[in-house]
């Protein structure tokens, strides 16, 4: 379990993280969602004791990271797959990590096998593709068989196969009862990966909720109706539902009434319908709506 309480970090006059509090539960994949520059990486670095917060604190299983005795046995983190020396072999990289936390070299070979790098373990990490580097980073995170895992934008730059692999991997880790926190700036990715969401923008907490709830709240269902008797239908609906016009093809967009009720109402009043289709608001739209105020850089 990860608890953040009032985390605050300034860089000069810029506030990167602003009084951020949340908890991450064990046994679930929790998505850490926000636009680029929202403070996700800074928050993760503070959780891991790399950056010191100006205010507040972060606890892992009740302790600050720096007080963990064998940190890799408690927390595994993949913040940046490029954090390896390019002229050091994958196995050597994992070996020094293992040594530092009294982990056996046998476990090094196990995690290499787990992420599918056994065949290239002797090769220098500098020659790895992004996907391979990412797998090496995950191997490092798993080395101590930790109960808490943090991944910062793990699918960035991966091919579809790699994305599916990481997604399944995280579900398996959470299924084993571990705490999994994974950051992303893509809601669509998180919708498929995370069960819970922590959404931040400009360093502030926007929402902490389950993914389903977040999507339900954020996206509103509506029904598109096309009818030759649009005016009559509009009158019938008036009062029981909100009706707007679709700017493009003149269809009616009905909010607050399900398709079945609309169909029945039309049939009872002899109104012909040419189209009756439920639509769901897009996730990305909803996310943009929510974080609109807090995006750091806007396109022109």
């Amino acid at each position: 379990m990860i608890e953040a309480a009032g985390l605050t970090k300034h860089y000069g006059t810029t506030v990167a993280v602003d009084d951020l509090s949340f908890t991450v539960e064990a046994g679930r994949v929790t998505g850490f969602l926000g636009p680029n520059g929202a403070g996700k990486s800074t928050t993760m670095r503070m959780i891991l004791g790399l950056d010191t917060p100006n205010k507040g604190r972060a606890l892992i299983d009740g302790k600050p990271y720096v007080e963990l005795k064998r940190p890799l046995g408690t927390v595994g983190a993949l913040l940046d797959a490029k954090w390896v020396h390019p002229n050091r072999s994958a196995r050597s990289h994992l070996r020094w990590l293992a040594k530092s936390n009294h982990i056996s070299y046998q476990r090094v070979d196990e995690v290499l096998e787990m992420v599918g790098l056994t065949a290239v373990a002797h090769r220098n990490a500098g020659g790895f593709s992004l996907g391979m580097a990412q797998r090496l980073g995950i191997a490092g995170a798993l080395l101590g068989d930790p109960s808490v895992l943090l991944f910062d934008e793990p699918v960035n730059g991966l091919d579809p196969e790699g994305i599916v692999w990481i997604r399944q991997f995280m579900h398996r880790l959470a299924g084993e009862g571990r705490t999994v926190l994974v950051s992303s700036h893509l809601l669509s990715e998180m919708a498929q990966t995370a069960q819970d969401l922590i959404v931040i923008g400009r360093g502030k907490l926007i929402a902490q909720t389950s993914t389903d709830q977040f999507i339900k709240d954020a996206t509103e269902d509506s029904v598109r109706v096309r009818s030759p008797h649009a005016d009559k239908l509009r009158e019938l609906l008036d009062g029981s539902a909100a009706v707007t016009d679709d700017a493009v093809d003149g269809a009616l967009v009905v909010h607050g009434m399900d398709p079945a009720s609309i169909g029945e109402l039309a049939a009872a009043n002899g109104v012909v319908l040419h189209e009756l289709s439920p639509t769901r608001g897009s996730l990305e739209e909803a996310f943009m709506q929510l974080t609109k105020e807090s995006v750091e850089y806007h396109g022109a």
Binding site: L50, D80, K82, V84, L97, S100
Partner: peptide, 18 residues
């Protein structure tokens, strides 16, 4: 300096917070 350049210093401080 190579540890700082390649970010392995952070991996080091994660493994050994002291």
């Amino acid at each position: 300096t190579t540890e700082y350049r390649f970010g392995t210093i952070r991996a080091t401080f994660l493994a050994v917070p002291g």
